[in-house]
Nucleic acid binder design. Structure first.
Length: 432
RNA sequence: GGAGAGAUGGCAGAGUGGUUGAAUGCGACCGUCUUGAAAACGGUUGAUGGAAACAUCCGGGGGUUCGAAUCCCUCUCUCUCCGCCA
């Protein structure tokens, strides 16, 4: 969420940002609504002030029945007035906030303008795709030979985009997750295992809602309509943004560095026909997420954004996979994101780089929505800045991992960094 | 799932209809004293909007009233007991 005062002062910057992010929003309408709200608020507050004064008059009147009755009568009249005005104000405020929640954040000047992911810009390439000397198999074939995966029965159980990991597939997933948590926590990040179920305010705070609501699984409320609804998180980020909601942190504690792990659920609405094979795009997966809460300072955010990228690159490098980093263009940026890097790992069977990590910063956009603040050195209360990046998402990471390390005989070499998490094992080998 | 008790400032804890945005204690900060520190003493110490006046906030929402932290309804959360359970 942007500061309303900023929108008032810079409507053109906000409009331009929305256009470049390809977000349809009527800023002029928002500002008109804001003006009306302010006017009405002035009226309501004046009425309330009169009401408070009369209240004091009633006390001051004491035993003077005449003055007392007169003041009570006047009070009644004002109360009737506020009773009419207050609901009007409340409605306006709700309407204004709903609109405000849809105003996207301003992209950084370094972000290229573009309509969708095809206009993302590669700015770093590391490693060279291997020359196999044989036709590399895709991850589905490799995992089948290693008896790691059963998609058919996964689909029987839970429908399309579901899967069952099996045997070494399970061992590999657990090893990867533990490896990622260790690797990041060694850099001073506190591990968190967070709820995969969260309330609506967490999603609003994170800026997943209102726009991304169609990608989120909602749980049926069983009882009353006003029972708080729960949703399945698409990333631990949602829960982590929510966990400090309403707090005023001590500035001395910042930056707070978390590495959170959770199951993640995504409806993948509107992706029919995309990545239908294997485990590239699934409804449920596990993700280890890096998360930073830092001071309200652009340079600080930028520093951590780069640091989070370096951490993710370190993981990809340790797993010995060729990758490149793209600078995500405005049209492919989320509402709240100021700037985003994606790491894409080389997938030999596709002859393409595919996204495995996503590194973004938000300035105080999420903090404003989730109301997470801190007291700075001068004692001033300010909104924090938030950032997050993937550390590792499974099973997707298995695709480049298994494909890049496959051998002609169907075995897969395990990168040395991962071996300690698999009891020192050096390779996965087909049973026959 | 059933029965009961509670939710107040960073923490503890008063406050059951009218200068209570909130006593008191602790903590924190500033100062005096001290070679330094401790102790003692004095002072300061919530947030949001607003230039200010002022308005709002005592778990959330709604209601009663001229007036609500205080009364009513409802939701959430915490605790105790029973049931169930990994």
């Amino acid at each position: 969420m942007l500061d309303l005062a900023f929108i008032r002062a810079n409507p053109d910057i906000v409009k331009d940002a929305a256009t470049r992010k390809r977000v349809a929003i009527d800023i002029d309408h928002l500002l008109a609504l804001d003006t009306r709200t302010q006017e009405l608020r002035r009226q309501v507050e004046a009425a309330r002030a009169r009401q408070n004064q009369l209240s004091k008059d009633i006390q001051a009147a004491g035993k003077d029945q005449e003055a007392r009755i007169a003041a009570i009568e006047a009070g009644r009249a004002v109360a009737a007035e506020t009773k009419v005005l207050e609901p009007q104000l409340r409605d306006l405020e709700v309407e204004l906030r709903d609109l405000l929640l849809r105003v996207p954040n301003i992209p950084d000047a370094s972000v290229p303008t573009g309509r969708d992911e095809s206009e993302n810009v590669e700015f770093k390439k590391v490693g060279t795709p291997r020359d196999f000397g044989f036709t590399p198999q895709d991850h589905v074939a490799i995992m089948a030979r290693l008896d790691m995966l059963d998609v058919e029965r996964g689909v029987r159980v839970a429908g399309s985009r579901s899967y069952i990991l099996k045997g070494d597939g399970v061992r590999l997933e657990m090893a990867l997750i533990q490896f990622a948590i260790d690797r990041i926590s060694q850099k001073g990040f506190t591990p968190l295992s967070v709820p995969a179920l969260a309330r609506e305010f967490c999603f609003i705070g994170n800026s997943q809602f209102p726009r991304g609501k169609d990608q989120v699984y909602a749980l049926e409320g069983e009882g009353e309509a006003d029972e708080p609804q729960l949703f399945l998180v698409g990333t631990a980020e949602v829960a982590i943004t929510g966990m400090h909601s309403g707090e005023i942190l001590d500035g001395a504690e910042l930056p707070i560095k978390y590495v959170g792990v959770s199951p993640c659920f995504r409806k993948e609405a509107g992706t029919y026909g995309k990545d239908t094979k294997g485990i590239m795009r699934v409804h449920q997966f596990t993700k280890v997420e890096q998360y930073i809460i830092c001071q309200n300072d652009h340079e600080e955010s930028v520093r951590w954004h780069e640091a989070l990228l370096a951490n993710a690159e370190d993981i990809v490098t340790a797993l010995e996979m060729p990758y490149h980093v793209v600078l995500v263009c405005t049209g492919d940026l989320g509402d709240g994101q100021v700037k985003k890097y994606d790491i894409e790992c080389w997938v030999p069977s596709e002859g393409a780089y595919r996204e495995t990590h996503s590194d973004s910063y938000f300035h105080d956009y999420q903090a404003r929505r989730a109301n997470v603040r801190y007291r700075d050195a001068e004692g001033k209360v300010r909104f924090v800045h938030t950032l997050n990046n993937t550390a590792l998402a499974s099973p997707r990471i298995m695709i480049p991992l298994l494909e890049n390390h496959q051998q002609a005989d169907g075995s897969v070499t395990i990168p040395p960094a991962l071996r300690p998490y698999l009891g020192g094992q050096t390779e996965f080998r087909p049973k026959r």
